[in-house]
Amino acid sequence: MSLVVESVAKSFDRFAALNGVSLAVPKGAFLALLGPSGSGKTTLLRILGGLEFADMGRVQFEGEEWLSLPARERRAGFVFQHYALFRHMTVAKNIAFGLEVRPRAKRPPRAEIDRRVAELLSLVQLDGLGQRYPSQLSGGQRQRVALARALAIEPRLLLLDEPFGALDAKVRKDLRVWLRKLHDATGITTIFVTHDQEEALALADLVAVMNQGRIEQIATPEELRAAPATDFVAEFLADQRVRPTPLAANVVALR
């Protein structure tokens, strides 16, 4: 188990966003945090990314005490729902950012940085767009830049906060397929927050269904469909239990 979360709790003023959450994720797995708004899934993700601080609990990642590490030292790539691209920088500069801010000792030479940026642009199928600015790209393209930027730092953990939430349905479906392929190719432990059951069940190896700051059930998509542990899970996944649509079987190229 490379990621172990133990009884993490977090409150904002008097609102308990997380009520003692525990889970374990094997290395290289794709975990979806699924739930309605207010369930605490984004809070948990942000705690894992170092953008929020837990009130209680413990997290271990690959043996390290994760919560005592500041965000900048975690090498946890974070992809935001609204991309959070640096608008005054080109696509190439955005992607190179994580490499350029490294301390001199650890910084790769210029040529190496450029090479990696080109590689990543290829990987996310945005070749030749390196000199554009984010304002000149479509939503789907921007999200791919955001992903490339997060991947540039060779993250140990990839955290995605409803990354397709701001995109329209068709783009979302295409990117979903593409993300899964990416994950299979890179093997990075990935945690993905969404409120869309179809998306979660199609994409993930493991799904943690959350509600009001607690995990109701954590299991593979098949187990969730076949044997929902609580009423909430059963209701939440109601329309997904009829027609399973696993993604591994589809291979769709991204235009």
């Binding site: 990314g49 170092g50 953008l51 500041p70 965000a71 900048r72 030292e73 975690r74 090498r75 946890a76 790539g77 974070f78 935001f80 609204h82 959070a84 691209l85 640096f86 608008r87 005054h88 920088m89 950012f97 994580g98 801010v101 490294r102 955001a146 930027r149 997060a150 540039a152 730092i153």
Partner: peptide
């Protein structure tokens, strides 16, 4: 906070974030 949070997750110190992300914006 999003752009600055992104910069933090990418490994930038507060000073680097300020100079490279905040000030230009």
């Amino acid at each position: 906070p999003q752009a600055e949070e992104a910069a933090a997750t990418l490994g930038a110190t507060r000073l680097q974030t300020f100079v490279r992300v905040v000030l230009p914006a």
